[in-house]
Design a protein around this nucleic acid. Structure first.
Lengths: 341, 341
DNA sequence: CTGTTAGCGCGTTCAC
DNA sequence: GTGAACGCGCTAACAG
């Protein structure tokens, strides 16, 4: 059967405690003794039973999540996923506490981050805002020795250990690449709806979209982006106006949130020629719009994956174990009405 | 802290053994005693520690996989994923044995299935062939009380407990829906390359593709499908001929394997007008073709997910636990060159 | 520096 | 019917 610490101990002629010290890289073992143990491990092909180790340790990981109290469906889904993992805490040996802060509120976020430093948390996951004070506050948390993962929205210049989210530039390119294939050979205009160009994610998506579209030799013109602030009402007004003012409109790329407004605007108009629409995040609203044919494509990041990945990374980091970054990459999902989950 | 069996025992005023009997639904407990225990469990919100339970049980799940010894990249990837899980056996408390049988060989598969019945396996995962003798052999395995999961290729009329694979009709619809958007308003023809129309998966993809494409009001004509038998050489010859004979060809949907041949044929021709190509399974070849612009879209099923899902389902089935089917659904991945993992 | 020992939460003989 | 006691593989005090 599978070799155990006992087998290693007797093979190496030492006691369990010594084996344990070597296994966990703790001090108090002379080099030659350590060598003997390592050789025994090698020889017997020992693999430690993580479940048993955790059981013995009885360790729990107190983790902190800081997320915006945003009203949109995606953030709600994210919070729901965190709550789900919170409920699984006893099973996963985690104790997750969640702090919500007003969206886009730098000061509130900084205050929350500074509060985290006082708690004895084993790791922090935070939806970052792209601002210098946030970067500094994050640095202070890291300086405290607390592992930090940015969630959904990154802050690459900061000291965060990992980012659990999608490559937004690639997402934009994907949208542009699809739109280019949809409208190849046509002549007309494409509308762009963003949340805010001050948000890094949105800027990156926009860049990627433009770059990918340029590779097609088309007579397509991009309208200058309108900012919907991720608010359905505002998006509704902007899109309605766009549809009225631009008879040659062939497509719309909505790269922010607030798609309820987009969908309402689309359903209110009655055009003869089809309009190709690409949006982000699969929610009840965008799903219904896909099924109704109002939206062609939804690009999605799986909030559940992001949350679970963040937890895995934080636990590994807390234990000083390396993570396989490639394995934690969050994929860009593409949904049509035909491959909905 | 988390309540344990000890807490339940003292709360209910019984011993650990009695609690255990109730927990595992074993006989030897009077109804009133059982009630007291259940009430205590309810009251304290007890959730049993699966890891500790497994540790105590020392249980291992001997699982059997039967897969075709096919030469194509997808099956190779599938076998690699199984091997990877095999290596993780000690950690996951599984002991996986793999049997390979010649592809499309009904007799060999039936023989392998009948051999499984003699082993004391805790579960079987098999890439099915759509044939009556296979269905009967599967029924015999199920009759033996062995949980069975079909992998990649299903056999719905059989007694299998679960299917770990994609909805091929939906995959076909997805391809058709994309092709329709790519070529909307054009006039021309679309080529179809299948492996074999005797394979259920391929028939389903074809059906889905046709159905989705019909929803577009286009002047597109579907050529009758050519059968490449999943062999690169054959596919190469067929596609080369198609490209020569059909000057009005606008797109190709390759719904089987052997895409090496497709890619070679595409790279050898030099057309002026772009050709929209959709294929299945992300391999080193199709990935390179995406990046080179020879293929527009690759639909993919994640072999790793399929294998891991099959294992989870088999273990659950062996323990008589229900699985959340929705959670085990294998998604249809869509890849462009822009969102490659 | 190294060894002994007592658990972690649960399952499973055995006696009673 | 019910309970006490031991062990799964590993960690963590404590001794030595």
């Amino acid at each position: 059967m599978k070799p155990t610490v006992h087998d290693i101990a007797s093979e190496a002629g030492v006691s369990l405690a010594t084996v344990d010290r070597v296994l966990n890289g703790r001090p108090g073992v002379r080099a030659p003794t350590r060598e003997r143990v390592l050789k025994a491990i090698e020889k017997l092909g020992f693999v430690r039973d993580v479940a048993a180790a955790n059981l013995a340790k009885g360790r729990v990981y107190p983790l902190t999540f800081i997320v915006p109290s945003n009203d949109n469906s995606f953030m709600a889904a994210l919070r729901a996923e965190i709550a789900a993992q919170q409920a699984r805490g006893p099973l996963e040996r985690t104790a997750i506490s969640v702090t919500t802060v007003p969206a886009f509120d730098v000061e509130a976020l900084v205050a929350a981050l500074d509060r985290v430093r006082l708690e004895k948390t084993a790791g922090l996951a935070v939806v970052a805002i792209d601002a210098a004070p946030v970067r500094d506050a994050l640095a202070r948390v890291v300086a405290e020795g607390i592992p930090v993962v940015t969630l959904v929205s990154d802050l690459p210049e900061s000291e965060r250990h990992h980012f659990a989210g999608i490559d937004n530039e690639a997402a934009g390119r994907t949208a542009g690449s699809l739109m280019g294939r949809f409208l190849d050979g046509r002549r007309g205009r494409i509308g762009l709806v963003v949340g805010s160009l001050e948000v890094r994610d949105h800027r990156q998506r926009l860049e990627g979209f433009r770059a990918a579209l340029q590779e097609f030799e088309t007579d397509l013109t991009l309208l200058s982006p309108v900012e919907g602030r991720d608010e359905p009402e505002r998006v509704h007004a902007l899109v309605t106006q766009m549809l009225r003012d631009e008879p040659a409109l062939l497509g719309i790329y909505s790269l922010g949130a607030g798609n309820r407004g987009l969908i309402r605007a689309l359903s209110e108009q009655a055009r003869k020629q089809p309009l190709r629409v690409i949006a982000h995040e699969l929610t009840t609203h965008t799903r219904a719009a896909l099924e109704a044919g109002l939206i062609d494509i939804v690009l999605n990041q799986d909030a559940g994956h992001e949350v679970r990945s963040a937890i895995r990374v934080l636990k590994a980091q807390a234990d000083g174990q390396a993570v396989i970054a490639a394995q934690e990459r969050i994929r860009i999902d593409i949904f049509l009405k035909d491959n909905l989950p």
